[in-house]
Design a protein around this nucleic acid. Sequence first.
DNA 1: CTTTCGGCCGTTAGCGGTAACATAGCCGAA
DNA 2: TTCGGCTATGTTACCGCTAACGGCCGAAAG
Lengths: 347, 347
Amino acid sequence: MSLTSEPRLDHRRTLTLRDVSEASGVSEMTVSRVLRNRGDVSHSTRDRVLSAAKALGYVPNKIAGGLASQRVNLIAVIIPSLSNMVFPEVLTGISEVLDDTGLQPVVGVTNYSPEREERVLYEMLSWRPSGVIMAGLEHSDPARAMMRNAGIPIVEIMDVDGEAVDSVVGISHIRAGQMMAQAILASGYRKIGFLGTQMPHDHRARKRLQGFTAALQVAGLEVQDREYYEGSSALLKGREMTQAILARRPDLDFLYYSNDMIGAGGLLHCLGAGIDVPERLGLAGFNGVELLDGLPRRLATMDTCRLEIGRRAAEIISGKTADGKTSGLRIELSPRLDPGETIRAPR
Amino acid sequence: MSLTSEPRLDHRRTLTLRDVSEASGVSEMTVSRVLRNRGDVSHSTRDRVLSAAKALGYVPNKIAGGLASQRVNLIAVIIPSLSNMVFPEVLTGISEVLDDTGLQPVVGVTNYSPEREERVLYEMLSWRPSGVIMAGLEHSDPARAMMRNAGIPIVEIMDVDGEAVDSVVGISHIRAGQMMAQAILASGYRKIGFLGTQMPHDHRARKRLQGFTAALQVAGLEVQDREYYEGSSALLKGREMTQAILARRPDLDFLYYSNDMIGAGGLLHCLGAGIDVPERLGLAGFNGVELLDGLPRRLATMDTCRLEIGRRAAEIISGKTADGKTSGLRIELSPRLDPGETIRAPR
DNA sequence: CTTTCGGCCGTTAGCGGTAACATAGCCGAA
DNA sequence: TTCGGCTATGTTACCGCTAACGGCCGAAAG
C-alpha cells in the first residue's frame, strides 16, 4: 500500500517488454529493437527506451526471445572433469574466441561416465544450442545419433585417433605415445615402467599407452611393469605409486606417467629417496601443466596444445575459419616434447 | 528423393511434439505428459509414445517448455575462476546435492572482474534461472539490484564478512587470518612476511590479511614485509616470490602465503636452499588443497570447507533446509587449521 | 505536384510447449 | 437407473518475444 515509495519491485510479477514499452511510450517491437540493437530506431527514442529499461531494472527474457527467433547464442561444451586442470585451459581458449562473437559457452561435466555424457548431451541439446564442443571421440550410439541429428556444428576435441561425427580438433595420442617412447629409447633407457589411470575410462591415456608400447615393440622391447590407480590424480598418489612399482621392480630405469601431476609426485619421491634422476632413473609425464613449473627439477612432458585446441574449436563453431565452413573440418595439432631435466641426453 | 532409406533426419526441420504426437496417434498434450512423467497416462499409451519418441530421436525443447511453464530448472553459479582448484571443488559440492533435484547448475566465470561479473549475471538472469549461487559478497550496485529484484533465491558463498543480498554460506576470512596469526605467534615466530595476490581483486585474501594483521597488532607486532604478484598462482611464482622477499629481508622467521600453491613453491625453494623449515623459518598457506599432499613436507594450511559450502548452498537453493526456507539464511562454517610440518610446535 | 524512397515505428502471427479446464468413458454405490 | 467420482485424454489460451510485413511521413527526384 505504499504510495510513492522506493523502487517497489519487491514481489511484483517480473517485468516484460510491455512494461518497458508503456514506460517509454513506444511499442514493444521498438523496445525489442532497441535492446537488441537491430533495425532502425531514432536516437531520441533509443535513449528514452534505454533509460526506461534501466530505471525499471528490466532484464530481457531469452527464453521467450529464443523461442521466437529460433536462435540461441549458447555453445554446449561437454568435458569429463573440471578438476583435471587440463580442461579449464581448453575452456579458456574457447572463451577467448567466443567472447567477441556473442556466443556463450555452457559447460557440462561427465565425470568420465558415458551414461552421464549421454544425459548431459540430451539436457544441453534440449536448450537448442548453436553448436557443441565435445571432448573425445568415444561416445555411446545414442549420443552420436543425437549429435548427428542436431543439425548444428559439432566439434570433437582433444583427440584425432578415431572417427568424428562432424569436425575434430586435437592431437594424436597414439603418436604422442610413440614420440615419447622414441625419445626415451634414444636416451638409452631400456627397462620401462608405466603408471597411469585405469584405462577403461580415459581413452586418450589408453591410446597413448598403445602408441607407446607399439613404439617399444619396434625396438624389440615392452613395458616391464605397470601401476594403475583410480580416482583423481594428486602428488601423493604419484609418490605412492612410484614407491610401489619401484619396490616390485627396482631395476626399472624409466617411469612413464600418464599425467604430470602423478609424475611430479613420483619425481618428489625419487629425489627424496636419493635416486639419481635422470641418470639412474628417467621420468616423464604428460600434458605440460605449467602449474608445476617450479619443481626441483623440470619434469619431462609433452605439451598438448590445450589452449590452441580450445581456440580452434571455437573458431570452427563460430564460423571464423578461413572459408567460413563450420563442419567437416579436421585439425590435427602437433604436441611438442619437452625433455625437461628428467630424461638424460640422447646417446 | 530417397524412397525408403535409412533414418532420414538429415536436413529436415527439427522435430516437435507434434511429430511425436502424429507418430503415436495421441494429442501433443498426452505426449507432453508422458515425456515429463506428469499426470495420468495409461501404460499402453505411455509405451507407444516413448517408443515413437525414441524412434524419431526427439529431443524436447526446453525453450518452449520453459516459456510455457514459467519454470526453468537452471541454477546460475557465478565464480571468479576455474583454474584456481578451489572453485571446481565448490562446484562438486553443488552438483552432488543438485543431482537428485532435477536442478542443473550453469557456471559463469568472472575472472575476478566486477564488470564481467555484472555482465555474466545479467546474461544468466535473462535465462530466468530458479536460483543464483554467487561467490563473494562484493558486487557492483547494479549487480546487487539485479539479484534483489530477480525474485529467486540468491546464495552468496565463500565469505560471511559483509552484508548479503539474501542468503550466505561461508567462512569468515577475517577470523581465518586471525587464527593463523595466533597459531604463528604461539609458536614463537615474530618476524613475519606476507606473500599474496595483489589485493584489490581478491577480497577474501584481503580480509584474511586484515584479520592477520589485526591479530599481530594485538601482540604489538606487524607484518615486516610483503610481496605481491598478479596473475595466476603456480609453484614457480611461489619460488620466485620467496626468493625475492628473503633476499630483501633474510631475517624473517615466518612466511604467510595467500594460497597453498605459491606456499608449496615457497616450501620447495626453502628446502632446496637448505633453509631449516620450520625451525629457522616457518611457512603457511591457505585453502587445504589436497592436490598438494605429497610435498616433501606437509605445508601448514587452513581448510576452507569448500565442498561443504557448495553442498549447503545447493541445499538452500533447492529448499532442502530444515524448514524448507530458501532465503535469508546465514551459515558460517569454521575453517580448520592444519599445522602440517612447517610450523614448529607451540612454545 | 506527384512519385519514390528510405527512416522510423506499429501490427500480426506465430515459435513449441504447458496450465487449466473440459470431456468421455467406466465403475460402483445409492 | 442415476449419479458422483475417477481415469485417460483432448481443447483452448496463453507464455514473452521476434520475423515479416505494412504504413506513415518528409525529402529528394522526376
